[in-house]
Design a protein around this nucleic acid. Structure first.
Length: 575
RNA sequence: UGCCCUGUGGUGUAACUGGCAACACAUCUGACUCUGGAUCAGAAGAGUUCAGGUUCGAAUCCUGGCGGGGCAGCCA
């Protein structure tokens, strides 16, 4: 007894020390109970079921991490299944990008890549079976009539006049539908359920509709296509899925999901709904993202400001950071708005450990070291990543003329500004102590053109033999050796936290941040940067994390700023 | 005037199905530091939407309000 208490205390203590997000959520507790009860023989089998009609975004990443993550955790499996039942909206372009994004995120569906369209034959047979059971009928009502007959949220619908056709007639008509005897929209196959159900989905919902349109996988084999509700539950059933996880808007569809499976008396997975992701200062709906792309507000699906997986990838987010983020935000049933700072925290957390450091000056200010010998140069040792000793060191050239960051100098420094100012001494990272002697300005504009400074040769490497301290360390680049390149600075795409929640008469587009992209053309880098590969990520010391953009060439690099470093001076300035 | 879901610090989630509301982000201190980074230590901040009820004891159970979301595609 006392031993137990002791153990528990130790556990509690460890829990307290353990960092990181809580790993429990309501879905896992359902699964735990199912396993305990022996449901599905203790098996866990999930699936990620995108429709190939757009690019994946960070919200999908949440779902991908959930589905694949749960499968992994319970030693189960997760399928990738394309929900491709509407040929007019879908395209192989999207299939390819989705596959790329899922595997880039680090998940493997192995040999379980499926398409709902793989099941079209079986689905047709299931529909026939439903007809034979008297549970489905061909309805001749026009679309607007169907709508009228459906009733409203508060009023029951009325039954279609075609509802009581004989099984034979239904079978015949359905076959004719399949054989292309009718135009689009002329007839549909409907479930015979309950026109007065308080759940609109149960008011004889559509099973098959006619679309004379060729499908990206089945070509012209079919001119009738099954609807989502019918397809999804049966696809889950066919694949022996145990837990079918989807977002909240399908909650009301669960009744139908269960109904089809019950009528057909087939293997019955369970649908569980969770809240989709909302992220502050952005939009996460395919429709809205598509509009940003189509109307040219961004450069494409992979614009680094986009919350798409491809946008985040181009921006410099790592798969690890995104997976960590998914873990961090958790899973629940209430809709919420996740603060962007969580996403930013996730990348910093990862990149801090893995991104090599480099010095880059984004807004250059020339510094001339008057007492440094003309034409002299030396190579200084710099650490590639203080968080990772195995990353090693590199040489950085130093000479008489340097660039430093314009923000690192103030002629009249306010309190708490520790950086360079007239007469003040600072350290140049990995180099020497430097003291500002004079400021040269443009006579007409008053703009500071250059600084004249002196260095202390005794401080090579960054520390002084006499033990005197400096309050700041600046990054710098030797002017003669510098590589000039371009840096793109990104900010939120929107000016308000929740662009989905707009004032009356306004549209999310009205809240676009017109300063979300700033291009800096005169940035100077350590010469080593010329070898940087597209897609690789660096920390520019004291500035942030940056990623080599695909528009870079051998001689001209383009960097995207992924995220800034935490910056307590910037915060202080804001106050 | 229908049905379903949902209300826990500023934000996102926990609380082993009734036992002192915990963790993370954000915020603020301080220590350390050749990145105002990282790291470390600490602080402030909710009494769980409200009102009743059951109970020795309620975020958890019951009743009723209030707030938020979803549903009337031959979209998913």
């Amino acid at each position: 007894m006392s031993g137990n208490t002791e153990n528990r205390n130790i556990e509690n203590h460890n829990e307290k020390k353990a960092k990181g997000p809580s790993t429990s959520n309501f879905i896992k507790s359902i699964i735990n109970n199912d396993i305990k009860a022996g449901k599905y023989g203790g098996r866990v089998h999930t699936r990620f079921p995108p429709e190939p009609n757009g690019y994946l975004h960070i919200g999908h990443a949440k779902s991908i991490c959930l589905n694949f993550g749960i499968a992994a955790e319970y030693n189960g499996l997760c399928n990738l299944r394309f929900d491709d039942t509407n040929p007019v909206k879908e395209d192989v372009e999207y299939v390819d990008s989705i596959k790329e994004d899922v595997s880039w995120l680090g998940f493997d569906w192995q040999d379980r890549l499926f398409f709902a369209s793989d099941y079209f034959d079986q689905l047709y047979e299931f529909a026939v079976e439903l007809i034979k059971k008297g549970k489905a009928y061909v309805c001749d009502l026009a679309p607007d009539e169907v709508k009228e007959y459906r009733g409203t949220l508060t009023m029951p619908g009325k039954e279609s006049p075609y509802r009581n056709r004989s099984v034979e007639e239904n079978l015949d008509l359905f076959k004719q539908m399949r054989d292309g005897e009718f135009e689009d929209g002329l007839r549909v196959l409907r479930a015979k359920i309950d026109m007065s159900s308080p759940n609109m989905n149960m008011r004889d919902s559509t099973i098959y509709r006619i679309k004379h349109s060729s499908h990206h996988r089945t070509g012209d084999k079919w001119c009738i296509y099954p609807m989502y509700d019918f397809t999804h539950c049966l696809s889950d059933s066919i694949e022996r899925i145990t837990h079918s996880l989807c977002t909240l808007e399908f909650e009301n569809h669960r009744l139908l999901y269960d109904w089809y499976l019950d009528q057909l008396d087939v293997y019955h997975p369970q649908q569980i709904e969770f809240a989709r992701l909302n992220l502050s200062y952005t939009v996460l709906s395919k429709r809205k993202l598509l509009r940003l792309v189509r109307q040219g507000y961004v450069s494409g699906w992979d614009d680094p400001r986009m919350p798409t997986i491809s946008g985040l990838r181009r921006r410099g987010y790592s798969p690890r950071a995104i997976r960590f983020f998914a873990e961090l935000i958790g899973i629940a049933k209430k809709d919420s708005l996740v603060d962007l700072s969580m996403l930013e925290f996730s990348v910093r957390e990862d990149l801090n450990k893995h991104a090599p450091r480099i010095m880059a000056v984004l807004n250059p200010l020339k510094v001339i070291i008057d007492n440094y010998p003309d034409g002299h140069e030396e190579e200084l040792d710099a650490i590639n990543n203080p968080e990772d000793p195995s990353a090693g060191t590199r040489k950085v050239p130093f000479s008489k003329v340097l660039y430093i960051e314009r923000d690192d100098f103030m002629e009249q420094p306010p309190r708490k500004f520790f950086r360079l100012s007239p007469g003040r001494e600072v350290r140049l990272r990995y180099a020497y102590f430097l003291t500002c002697q004079s400021v040269i300005k443009d006579d007409t504009t008053g703009k500071i053109i250059e600084l004249h400074c002196t260095y202390d040769p005794e401080t090579k490497g960054g520390s002084s033999p006499d033990g005197r301290k400096v309050k700041a360390t600046l990054h710098w680049v030797s002017a003669r050796h510098a590589v000039k390149s371009e840096v793109r600075i990104y900010d939120h795409l929107f000016t308000i936290e929740n662009p989905n929640d707009t004032e009356d008469g306004k549209d999310f587009i009205d809240y676009l941040n017109h300063d979300s992209l700033k291009v800096l053309q005169e940035c100077y880098f350590e010469p080593g940067i010329i070898n940087a590969k597209i897609g690789s990520t660096y920390q520019f010391e004291r500035l942030g994390y940056f990623c080599v953009d695909k528009e870079s060439t051998d001689t001209h690099k383009v960097f995207n700023r992924t995220v800034t470093l935490r910056d307590s001076w910037a915060k202080h300035k804001k106050r």
